[in-house]
Amino acid sequence: MIYEGVLSKMQTEFQDPIQYYLVLDQSFLHINQMLGKTLEFEHTGYQCLNCGKKKKIFRQGFCYDCFMGSPAAGDWIMRPELSTAHLDIEDRDLDYEKRVQLQPHIVYLALSSEVKVGVTRKTQVPTRWIDQGAVQALPIVEVPNRYLAGITEVALKNYFADKTNWQKMLKNEVAWVDLFQEREKIASVLPEEVRPYFHPEAQDLYELHYPVLNYPSKVTSLNLEKTKQYSGKLIGVKGQYLLFEDQTVFNVRTYEGYEVRITIA
């Protein structure tokens, strides 16, 4: 069977194991059902996820112009401590920024390789942790806006990583620790304005299991710019990565906005 369309990050369902769906223009693939099958990817073009024009992708599925101008690609996306909508100050589009920034956000600890701290909108729980390939996640605080979440993350970066070691995550090399015990250590280092939102007795630990037949012992990333066509047997899905039998891994999210033809044998 042949499927064609523009890549965007896989949609997920929080089940045991996580269910993955690759949504294309006219169809979708239930990726869990593809395990053990041979998938061939062919890079055929580009289409910006923002403007829809067939322009080369710069970052995050956007062409250069959209990445530099869209409010969905502002610096506060990656650095939430730069959020200013709570002060009624515009970055690129204040209405958009208020809609996204002025809603409940979660600061969390997660285990994907080692313990990391992160921020997500409450509406993105547990999707954010699935996308990172976390095997456990524990909310620390729920705050009313992105700025408060951002300054909390900055304070905790002195004690925890803020990025996932993607190679260890894909090889399932997880440094198992007790997230409840880690949470107990942070009360004194939280920003003063965030402490009223800290509830150390909460027991809302999330556990996540992924559809993986075998974890690779080493990983080699598929680069669609250098390798226009690739074929491999799918043996797993974790985070936003497809894992293949030859130890090639493909980060779907990296190639958002890329037009592809997928052939399933």
Rank of each mutant, 00 (worst) to 15 (best):
Y210P: 08
L243T: 13
T123L: 12
R128Y: 07
H199P: 03
F244L: 09
Y258I: 10
F160N: 05
T152C: 13
V219N: 11
N172K: 13
T127C: 01
V237C: 15
W166E: 11
S188Y: 00
M169E: 10
S231P: 01
A134Q: 00
K218N: 14
V212T: 05
A187G: 01
F250Y: 14
K238V: 05
V260Q: 00
R261A: 04
F160H: 02
N165E: 10
E225Q: 15
K218G: 08
K238P: 12
L205C: 11
E142Y: 00
V189Q: 11
E192L: 10
G239W: 05
S188P: 02
L156H: 02
Q181D: 14
L222R: 08
L205F: 08
V189Y: 14
V135E: 12
V219G: 10
A202C: 03
N165T: 04
K238G: 10
I235W: 09
K122M: 12
Q247Y: 11
D178R: 03
L138G: 09
E192F: 08
Y258L: 01
K238T: 03
V194W: 08
Q203M: 11
K228G: 10
V249Q: 01
V249I: 15
P200I: 04
F250P: 00
K168M: 14
Q167G: 00
R121P: 04
L148T: 00
T263H: 07
N223V: 09
K226Q: 15
N158A: 11
V212D: 09
A175L: 12
F160M: 02
F180V: 09
L179H: 05
Q247L: 03
T164A: 09
R146Y: 04
E193H: 03
Y159R: 13
Y258W: 13
P144T: 04
N223I: 07
L213Y: 01
Q240H: 04
V219C: 14
L222S: 07
E184M: 11
K238A: 09
N145G: 01
Y255D: 06
L138M: 14
A161Q: 10
E193P: 03
E184G: 08
S217G: 12
D131L: 07
G236M: 10
T263A: 13
Y147R: 14
G236F: 06
T152M: 07
R128F: 07
